[in-house]
Design a protein around this nucleic acid. Structure first.
Lengths: 121, 121
DNA sequence: TCTATATATAGTAATAATTCCTATTACTAT
DNA sequence: ATAGTAATAGGAATTATTACTATATATAGA
């Protein structure tokens, strides 16, 4: 894949945030460094970065977000503030259980736990 | 809530299928019984049925689907045929673990397991 | 049964997120 | 430097969903 200034900018933006940004947020941030970047370029490069394994696409309800955290992990979604918090729960036993019980070869486990985070007690 | 012929039709359609239909699929099926139903009516009533607890909204990646199965359950998503299969895995220990470890009050656990189903071995 | 009123509907327009298209520009190897 | 390849900007097209509005319908009360 050929080098591209735009893609490097997008990558840096995604990797330097702790929130789980949407394409639109990434577009707006990237515009601050590369003012004439286009939204199409952002979408195309996010897709390519995902293909390269540099970032992950996560689905927060019907909102698409991007995540630089490549380790398998789950999310806690707070329904009060909307925060999406990275957590490490299980995994290994899920793979085995599902394979035995349903003859289903597991590639990926996506788990989102919806509730209320500690800030609202 | 006032009775509506259209809402009853939509409810019946959703409850009589084992697939996890999209709004568009539901619209097309409902048209067979109520030919001049409009798509807006389908969306409005799906939302109200969800509010009433008659159906659930599930997010299959960025595709929105509806599900009459109100029991808490998880999904296996086959990346070959796209099938979404209902399964019952765990739950109870997740709630406790998450509450203790992250001080996060769990309302709902959404788990989708991506892989290959038994039809493609 | 009839009427009044609130709610639902069909049909259309508007919005939002994403993808597609095309002319132009940049990079690479010769 | 030039040709060929690949990437970009910008805007149009697409898809899913929501909003709007005039008309139709359900239902409560006379």
């Amino acid at each position: 894949m050929r080098y591209s200034h735009q893609r490097e900018g997008i990558k840096k933006i995604v990797q330097c945030t702790n929130c789980h940004p949407t394409a639109d947020w990434i577009f707006n941030q990237t515009k601050k460094i590369i003012p004439n970047i286009s939204l199409g370029t952002v979408y195309r490069n996010l897709k390519r970065l995902e293909e390269e394994g540099e970032i992950n696409t996560i689905y927060d309800g019907n909102i698409v977000r991007y995540d630089w955290n490549k380790d398998p992990h789950d999310h806690l979604k707070c329904k009060v503030c909307g925060d999406l918090i990275d957590v490490q729960l299980f995994d290994d036993n899920i793979r085995e259980t599902v394979l035995k019980k349903y003859k289903f070869k597991v590639d990926d486990v996506e788990m989102t736990i919806i509730g209320t985070c500690h800030k609202h007690t």
